[in-house]
Amino acid sequence: MLYLRRLRDIIHNRGDPVLDEFGRIGILLLFALLFPSLPLMISYLFRLLRIRPEAPDPVKMDTYECGVETEGDSWVQFNFRYYLVALIFVVFDVEVVFLYSWAVAFPDLLLVAYIEALTFIGILAIGYIYAWRKKALEWR
């Protein structure tokens, strides 16, 4: 309920510093979405107006224009060993959450934060070295 109230406050009250900053990112996002989709939409419009001819061809409609021809389905059962890569990724993904706040607060803390983060990464590096020594990262 606190959040809904807060949301209502924000909706009726502009000038929020965080929103102002993200508003700029929003404009960038809008541009990033429009830039690739606009040519496709224009092309579709031209087809409707019969300006652009439509001539489908098996070679033209292929996924990759050149290289080895694709065969079979894209959805196959992948090797089980990839799962370890996913798990290691998740661990370092969570680490990034902590390091993000560290990076933003760094100018206020400097050397103390530097040593603290080095300890943090160092402890995790032990796990990485362990995985390396156990040859978990090697393909067998």
């Binding site: 798990l87 969570v94 796990g127």
Partner: peptide, 10 residues
């Protein structure tokens, strides 16, 4: 905690 998770996965 993250270290334990990593070693556990391996």
């Amino acid at each position: 905690v993250l270290l334990v998770a990593l070693i556990g996965a391996v």
